[in-house]
Write a protein that binds this DNA or RNA. Structure first.
Lengths: 207, 207
DNA sequence: GTCTATACCTGGATAGAC
DNA sequence: GTCTATCCAGGTATAGAC
């Protein structure tokens, strides 16, 4: 790993705990093991380090669904078919995957925290946060659930309403446990109960 | 209003946008219309202003249910009875009340933002935030829904699971729209759809 | 590309006059 | 209780030697 990459990494570590303003260039340099002045050979300002992190997040956004292990957006019908014989176990696995990805993926979970702290001072950060953590997942799941209704797997309810009922418990648990590793097991347990109930509500009974 | 109170008020205004570290004592003094040095006659440090805000929040916590207009905790059965002939309109009103209280109450909504920003650097703040915005409402609603099941108004499902399904969309919408006044109407519309669906799911049909 | 040294500024806080 | 003046620490950033 280049020094430039190590700077970005340590900066994200620090930003995700102490925030942008709470982290000094010296803090970052110390973590990397160089003097603060040396850091300026790699980035011309502290803000530029931050912007690099934002850029990296934007890049990952583009192929987020691969990261979560979801089928590609371009083929919603296929994914709905994939969930064709949707069992409770399938659904639990999917929800756990999304939850644990956001919660434990190193870059994503730290970015969640940084964005949470910076959202009110930085419109761009809020837009990214909202897009990734509040809209994308719901938009995607809406399309999937719509197909599942069409295929007679789910009962006939507005698919966006279903998607919100699917996602908001996950969002809530992420808000509660991100940055608190101890809570992972507790979060998973609550999630399991919610998903079981979700399945009970929306899975069409085979007649 | 005393100068001391005005300092606390302006400090909260600034903290809720720029965070604790992002706000200087001079910023606060300017907003109040005094010199920064004069501020120290009222508070002995910037941290003390912050602690005063936290203390105020703790005080409000104690009689939070009154603020939301909910019946007192001590009489859960009465409130369940109050919801006895629970109509969709009752439930919509209740959810709107909770949502709009957290979203538009001046002190509470600003505290939400401050706590959101400071939670990772300040364990006490995280504890308060979690308690007020993540646990209290669910705990309370769990008790109410349990009574409603007992009274045959709601179908028989684990009441905590129901409470989480009731509250997490509200929490999500608060996260999305707190500090963004423009989004209030949009949030209310989404909330309405979710509550209608909630009612459809849990309200026992009269046989 | 790393270091030492330094410039420059802002922020928190105190002293003392009025 | 407000002001001016001041101190000191820490923060961002640059210059220049190696």
């Amino acid at each position: 790993m280049t020094t430039k990459e190590r700077i970005a990494e340590e900066a994200l570590n620090l930003f995700s705990v102490k925030g942008f303003r709470g982290t000094s260039v010296k803090n970052i340099a110390d973590a990397v093991g160089i003097k603060d002045s040396s850091l300026y050979k790699h980035y011309k300002s502290k803000k530029e380090i931050f912007d690099g992190i934002v850029l990296e997040m934007r890049k990952r956004m583009e192929n987020m669904s691969q990261y979560i292990g979801l089928p590609d957006d371009s083929d919603i019908q296929a994914s709905a078919r994939m969930y064709g014989e949707l069992t409770l176990e399938n659904l639990l696995e999917l929800s756990r995957k999304i939850f644990l990805f956001y919660l434990t993926d190193d870059f994503i979970s730290k970015f969640w925290r940084v964005a949470t702290m910076e959202q009110y001072q930085n419109e761009e950060i809020y837009d990214i946060f909202r897009h990734i953590f509040m809209e994308e997942s719901i938009t995607y799941q809406t399309l999937v659930f719509r197909e599942m209704i069409r295929n007679g797997i789910f009962i006939e309810v507005n698919p966006e309403v279903i998607a919100i009922n699917f996602y908001t418990p996950i969002f809530f648990l992420l808000s509660k446990y991100n940055g608190r590793a101890e809570g992972k097991a507790e979060g998973l347990e609550i999630l399991e109960n919610q998903i079981k109930e979700f399945y009970r509500i929306y899975r069409k009974k085979n007649v």
